[in-house]
């Protein structure tokens, strides 16, 4: 089904702040099978120059996944037919335990590719103090029937 083109350029204000915990970072590192001590051990992270344990490079997806942009029924997205097309992260610094972050998302592109619909959403992940940590570019594809 065609997605609602009126959503191109629309921005979604930050929702509830997300507090990054050591436990969540370790759970994520376990799930991806990554044993790096900077994800688990605050002393190892400090020895490496970080204030606390840091999160793996793909961790920001956990924070940005809760974007309200894609669940608005007016957009017309059929989640069952969605696949991930592309993903990119631009980092100012790694996410780390203790960060309290908010996401601001903008839909930058919607277009048809054959029977599929492609949607690009950009998200700024910043601390509640206004420090930009990471910018994400998420392309999803709704497969046509």
């Amino acid at each position: 089904m065609a997605l609602n083109r009126d959503f191109v350029g629309r921005s979604f204000p930050p929702g509830e702040p997300y507090e990054v915990s050591r436990v969540k970072i370790r759970e994520f590192a376990d799930a991806i099978g990554d044993q790096n001590p900077v994800y688990r051990d605050a002393d190892a992270a400090k020895a490496a120059g970080h204030p606390d344990v840091i999160a793996p490079p793909t961790f920001p997806i956990v924070v940005s996944l809760g974007s309200p942009a894609l669940v608005d029924p007016e957009l017309g997205l059929n989640y069952a037919m969605v696949v991930h097309g592309e993903q990119r992260f631009e980092y100012t610094r790694p996410v780390r335990a203790g960060d309290v972050v908010v996401c601001t998302s903008t839909i930058t592109e919607i277009r048809s590719i054959g029977n599929n619909e492609k949607l690009v959403i950009e998200t700024d992940i910043s601390t509640t103090d206004g420090e930009l940590i990471c910018k994400t570019y998420n392309t999803i594809v709704e497969r046509g029937a």
């Binding site: 790096n36 793996p56 997806i61 592309e86 990119r88 790694p94």
Partner: peptide, 30 residues
């Protein structure tokens, strides 16, 4: 999950570089 695959390729890079904090940009197409 595409992001699981992306995470494995990310781990490949960070294990090589030695510091996960050294990654400044990372993108893939699935």
């Amino acid at each position: 999950h595409g992001m699981f695959t992306m995470a494995q390729a990310g781990r490949f890079v960070t294990d090589w570089a030695g510091d996960p904090g050294a990654v400044v940009d990372y993108g893939v197409r699935f």
